[in-house]
Design a protein around this nucleic acid. Structure first.
Length: 293
DNA sequence: CACCATGTTCCTTG
DNA sequence: CCAAGGAACATGGT
């Protein structure tokens, strides 16, 4: 369930539900997800603590806790990896197969499940320090973006996945933003024109905002029984018609006609990840004026 | 069996 | 030191 918009929606949903709840038990079923934090350390920090807030930084969840005894506050850091999910279940509901951690909250339990166990639930905030600016925040300025891109000859698609450059863009929205900007994913970061940098900054923000808006209106399932909750960039009760602006425009659409120019969407591999793009709309070299004959 | 998957880190090679 | 490429992590879907 990753990428910034999904995490943001989860924060908005889960935050109010957790606020004021006290952690009574901590069960660790897969210690790997604790990262550098030991199971003992986690339990000592969480038992008796109360949730006071939930925020997001990039793709990370920041659970704010106040210790049982006094004012000592702590931050529990979560990351969903590729397949992580977090939600509340009733105390006696069965736990899913790949449950990594369970926090007992009295009549409820907060479940962190993660099929592939790539995610994290930890007290170690080291990774947060390395993150670049929030793409929807005030620090992600055109000047910053231009400066950061100027220093690298890496393909722009790969740079967009660099969380130290900007925090929260993932493989899906990187492809989408580049398509909307009409920029080739292979273009070297330092070869983008000033105009392209501006457009790309805007399409990154637009695509993330739109996904958050969409996630806010979808009937997402946070309870866990079904599996229709995580990937809210898919599926839709779109309704209206001809052009579905809510859907993904290029991601996972290899071979299908570009919604703008009908050229078949292509897939390429960059940094061992799939990139989807339209070879008609996203060229490195500007289109040559066609001379008939 | 093959290949693919929303993420990130680590290792090797140049 | 840097960049690029690949493997690794672990499980499931097609």
């Amino acid at each position: 369930m990753p990428e910034l918009p999904e995490v943001e929606i989860l924060v908005r949903h889960l935050g109010p539900l957790l606020k004021g709840k006290r952690i009574r038990d901590v069960e660790v079923r897969r210690a790997k997800v604790l990262g550098r934090t030991s199971e003992r350390e986690l339990k000592a920090a969480l038992r008796g603590a109360m949730f006071t807030g939930l925020t997001r930084r990039g793709k990370y969840l920041l659970f704010e806790l106040r210790g049982a005894v006094g004012r000592k506050s702590r931050t529990l850091v979560g990351h969903l990896g590729m397949t992580g999910r977090m939600y509340l279940l009733a105390k006696n509901d069965p736990l899913p197969k790949h449950t990594a951690v369970v926090l007992g909250l009295g009549s409820l339990r907060m479940v962190y499940e993660d099929t592939r166990y790539f995610g994290r639930l930890t007290l170690d905030g080291e990774e947060i320090q390395k993150l670049g600016p929030e793409p929807l925040g005030a620090d992600f300025t055109g000047e910053y973006f231009a400066f950061a891109l100027k220093r690298s000859s890496q393909a722009i698609k790969i740079k967009l996945l660099d969380q130290t450059l900007v925090a929260g863009v993932g493989n899906i929205y990187a492809s989408e933003a580049l398509f909307l900007a009409g920029i080739s994913p292979r273009l070297a970061a330092n070869k983008l024109s000033e105009a392209q940098v501006k457009v790309l900054r805007r399409t990154i923000r637009d695509v993330l905002k739109k996904a958050i808006r969409r996630g806010s209106t979808l009937p997402l399932n946070f309870a866990g029984e079904e599996k229709s909750d995580g990937l809210f960039y898919y599926g839709s009760e779109s309704g209206a018609g001809d052009f579905d602006h809510e859907r993904l425009l290029v991601y996972d659409r290899k071979g299908q006609p570009c919604l703008r120019c009908k050229t078949p969407i292509e897939r390429l591999t960059q940094a061992a990840r799939s990139t989807f793009y339209c070879p008609g709309c996203q060229r490195i070299q500007p289109r040559v004026k066609s001379v008939d004959g």
